[in-house]
Design a protein around this nucleic acid. Structure first.
Lengths: 154, 154
DNA sequence: TTAATATTTGAATTTTGTTCGGATAAATAA
DNA sequence: TTATTTATCCGAACAAAATTCAAATATTAA
């Protein structure tokens, strides 16, 4: 028999946690570094006001959320007048599969870190990128094993 | 006159937030996706028990915490019997400046993403890496501009 | 169909975050 | 130096959120 998934909350949580919807554990930090929790609170607020903290988020075991395939992609842009690397990079960064996007110095213009379920899904994403106006060529480096991501050991 | 910083809590917070010491905002998520907060709680606990979530952490504006210099480093290992790439990668990952560490398929064996205050600091880290037994050569790609990191837009 | 398991939910409890005011320390100006 | 302003620290009171619990409902397995 076919059932409608009860609420199917898991994927919604994953989406939210990728970019935020977390918050500091003031009490735990206060205990850890042996200061008053109000002092910790004050210092965190200051960091946030300075803009030093962009988000509080979750780090996943990506294999367990169907994003186990990870690739570093270099992109070379076509050299022509009026081309805007920043604008193109914003296009790349918009994809939810793109974990990071940087402009580089040197022979390659851009590096992207992309996470997908598998090679097939990766190819679809890459195809979209290659199709964009301004992309001359790309080269991909497939990650065989990840032992640290986002400063977190796996 | 010279004063001792009162408590100097900021760097301690940054160190803790890089790897954890955060937690989900259950009430906010519940409101966002219009479910009972206890339902959200239940689903998050399940994700954690599955091991799908490795940590809750902060994402920084790295320029503002003196880690504005970012480099992708490829490492090639010396091909010899008994060499263990995994062991060497663990050595690399141990550095706090290393944001991510992966084993690659292809011409390069390892890619590291490294964050430091500036080029001088970066050179010190790289020197340590090059000094390790088993490293044949490296090549670095300097990030000129970061627009997305850890799935967070900057 | 029945039994076992997983998920959802509200009420009660516990824990945590936040505000506020005053104290202390540091930086700045006189 | 000394006076003044600003930044940081921290306890008490309060507000908000997380967690536990028990029961209802949905799903899966037998």
């Amino acid at each position: 028999m076919l059932y409608s998934n009860m609420k199917n909350i898991k994927p919604k949580l994953i989406r939210l946690f990728k970019e935020g919807y977390c918050t500091p554990q003031i009490a735990r930090i206060a205990k850890k570094i042996k200061e008053a929790s109000t002092t910790i609170h004050y210092n965190i607020k200051r960091l946030e006001e300075e803009g030093a903290i962009k988000a509080y988020k979750a780090v996943f075991d990506y294999k367990k959320i169907d994003e186990g395939f990870c690739v570093f992609v270099f992109v070379k842009l076509t050299a022509k007048k009026g081309a805007d690397p920043d604008k193109l990079l914003s296009e790349f960064a918009r994809y939810e599969e793109v974990e990071s996007a940087d402009i580089l110095a040197g022979e390659w213009d851009i590096i992207l870190k992309i996470r997908t379920k598998d090679q097939d899904e990766y190819y679809k994403v890459l195809k979209n990128i290659l199709a964009l106006e301004g992309v001359e060529k790309t080269t991909s480096f497939i990650s065989l094993k990840q032992i640290k991501t986002e400063f977190v050991m796996l």
